[in-house]
């Protein structure tokens, strides 16, 4: 990604421009299919059309600037991003499969710590587990708020 592009075309800017066009088209389509009309004044579709045009113009702006010189972003550590993503996904999965907040948060904690270069997995799991359990007890028991429960949480 970070290598200077040989052609003068700046690819990320181009992709963002095309993305904006796509969103604008979806918004226009959505507005055109609205059924409920306002009896007086403007309907709900007016804002959609306005923003659709606005996004279209921004898309055009991106296409133009894609042909100009752009500074490339600094290099990224994609492995670290992957670890954090894995952590976030584990929390989502834990809630999706009703495995509970504590398990999901523990995984999120130790995977994120791993992303930042920690290797002591066991220590992080224990720390994450203690923090997550503490939060769970505080919120569900003291503040009576429903954080998602799994088999472990039901023990309390």
């Amino acid at each position: 990604m970070s290598t200077p592009t040989a052609s003068r075309l700046h690819r990320p800017t181009l992709v963002i421009g095309i993305g904006l066009f796509a969103i604008a088209a979806i918004t226009w389509h959505d507005a055109a299919n609205m059924k409920i009309r306002a009896s007086y004044g403007m309907g709900a579709d007016a804002a959609s059309y306005f923003i659709s045009i606005f996004l279209g113009l921004l898309g055009l702006g991106h296409l133009i600037s894609a042909f100009r010189r752009q500074t490339d972003p600094e290099p990224s550590d994609w492995k670290a991003v992957l670890w954090v993503s894995l952590g976030l996904l584990s929390l989502i999965a834990a809630l999706w499969f009703d495995l509970g907040f504590v398990l999901g948060s523990t995984l999120l904690f130790c995977f994120t710590a791993r992303a930042f270069g920690r290797k002591a997995l066991l220590a992080d799991i224990v720390l994450g587990f203690v923090i997550a359990t503490g939060i769970f007890l505080l919120f569900n028991k003291v503040l009576t708020l429903g954080l998602p429960m799994g088999p472990f949480e039901r023990l309390f």
């Binding site: 976030l88 904690f109 710590a113 791993r114 992303a115």
Partner: peptide, 14 residues
């Protein structure tokens, strides 16, 4: 740093 950001993520999701 690792614990700080891990903590932030856990609290933010919570």
């Amino acid at each position: 740093l690792p614990w700080l950001y891990a903590g932030i993520l856990v609290f933010a999701c919570m």
